[in-house]
Design a protein around this nucleic acid. Structure first.
Lengths: 151, 151
DNA sequence: AGCTTGAGTTCCTTGAGGGAACCCCAAGTG
DNA sequence: CACTTGGGGTTCCCTCAAGGAACTCAAGCT
């Protein structure tokens, strides 16, 4: 495929993030690990991904510090668990889920529901300004050059 | 590459969303269009993407209703603009940006800053429960089967 | 010793991405 | 009118990553 290394393209946090989880399958692997599907065989069976590519993806995600390998047996058997860095990536997947629920689920409704611990209600994420708490969407911001702008 | 069609894998809003923007380049195209880089030549120059793949991606994004083609000349010249559906996808990219800013920007700091119209401050998105307004992150929810669970 | 199981590795085939050249069409210019 | 320019794509070939199936390896179990 001769995949471009996005982060060399420009200083861009989206491009950099894509270098971590932009490959096909990576987001779905994280979703599965989050949902408790955490072993090689389980992941392979659930996703139908080729074993070779699954190995590559898991190694890459471990190298990036998104997943950790935890042995669960004296035999060489491992469980993959989310690091803090990985858990925060799942936050992004929740925003992705919200969009898919809204625009792609159709009349069948969303396939998965989130129950929020704090209020006990079925809900979804809402993007708010970390500073003032008001809604913060694509049309609510101006883009400015940041300190890391030059590459 | 023989890419798998993710949404046939399971009823999953993440998989479905990946069928819309999971291909390499698609998120970066949306970012550029959002930032005002909206014509074919501009996109090609900014991203360094091959013209063939750019054509494919733009057609796909238009078919999916994420972008619209707007003629800007009596000659056949087009601008690509975000639909409402596409604009809400950019919200997800903002969550992605936040993660990249936090975990990948390093000491140089984030390359792009967002100034929130409502409060005028440089800020970033924060995920909140759409129901109660409290923070809602990966560890703050239980997953339940939804109405569209079966495929 | 032989069987099983989880977790990979090897090898071949296929098809998507990269790159460069080419094409089309409307305007502008002399 | 012919000639150039420039945006927006096609076409072609080549390479390399994903799929798929078979193979390996290292513990335990019987």
């Amino acid at each position: 495929m001769q995949r471009t290394n996005f982060s060399e393209l420009a200083a861009c946090s989206i491009a950099r993030t894509l270098d971590v989880i932009g490959e096909p399958w990576s987001p779905l692997i994280l979703r599965d690990v989050w949902a408790g599907i955490s072993r090689f065989e389980q992941l392979q069976a659930d996703l139908g991904i080729s074993r070779k590519v699954l190995t590559e993806r898991l190694n890459h995600l471990v190298e990036e510090g998104v997943l950790e390998r935890h042995p669960y047996d004296r035999r060489p058997r491992y469980e993959y668990v989310l690091t803090e860095k990985g858990t925060e990536l799942v936050d992004m997947l929740m925003a992705m889920t919200r969009w898919g629920d809204k625009w792609l689920a159709g009349q069948a409704g969303p396939p998965v529901l989130y129950r929020h611990h704090a209020c006990g209600e079925i809900s979804s994420v809402d993007l708010r300004c970390a500073h003032c708490g008001e809604p913060m969407h694509a049309n609510d911001v101006d883009l400015l050059e940041g300190p890391g702008a030059t590459r």
